[in-house]
Amino acid sequence: MRYVDHDLVVKRMGGRKIVNYLFKGLFMLATTIALLALAILLYRIVTQGAGNLSWEFLNNFASRFPEKAGIKAALIGSLWLMAVVAPTSIILGVGSAIYLEEYAKKNRMTAFIRTNISNLAGVPSVVFGLLGLTIFVRALSLGNSVLAAGFTMSLLILPVIIVAAQEAIRAVPNELRDASLGMGATKWQTIVRIILPAAIPGILTGSILALSRAIGETAPLIVIGVPVIIQFLPSGVMDTFTALPMQIYDWSSRPQQEFQAVAAAGIIVLMAVLLTMNSIAALIRNKFQKRY
């Protein structure tokens, strides 16, 4: 008895192969379209903005005249913002991760905190802006200062840092923990001297990527009321400031054609900052991450 009708298989094989190749082409096309979109995006921005990039552009304040407009206040403002966001979010994020991985008991409270973190990651950034506006700007009367914006951004990227730090801590093998505890170290000594040093590359990589998200975020800053035309640099965390994405948003939304080129130049600066941060993250990951 024949289980397989050989003639039928042969007859159909050609068609099935054609369908296979056809769809392979389609799937490849889909991938290419996605990559092409990125290529066009980068190409457009570089060609539009490169002409405006100059030392003056980096060193001038915002201006009504496109040829005089510069990005100094925004660039320095973004650095100020990072000076608040980086310590705040990393301390909160790593602290939470240590608690969840090393101390938390498996109970409903812990499960609740975990679910809460993943839900928080899905809240739109503009809603974080509303939180910042109500709590930091108004209730704590921080105004539209570096501090208010920095706290808002810290909460926004907190879930990302927690998850990254959790993964890094989880990747430290239990043998190291047990050895340290077995030698008589206390739990906290083990965490500070054994686990954190081993997990730091992973934590840093995740944190830098999260910070680069905070640098590019615009919506929360608008809601908080961060101004755009600023002719001075902040001298402390309580000063008002502006940031790169705010400045780019302002230039992009102006009707004059000339300002679009200025906006593109601003985007190049922003993307250069992001690229630098991402390269540092990749470098740390490749260089220091130990595989156990």
Binding site: T31, A34, L35, A37, L38, I40, L41, R44, I45, Q48, L209, S212, R213, I215, G216, E217, T218, A219, P245, I248, Y249, S252, Q260, A263, A264, I267, L270, M271, L274, N278
Partner: peptide, 23 residues
């Protein structure tokens, strides 16, 4: 390809907005 796609995910939305409006 996977890391390149991740770059696409890391592009700030303001940049996408500019791209939508001007291109």
């Amino acid at each position: 390809v996977k890391p390149v796609l991740e770059i696409l995910a890391g592009v700030p939305t303001i940049v996408y907005g500019f791209f939508a409006l001007t291109f």
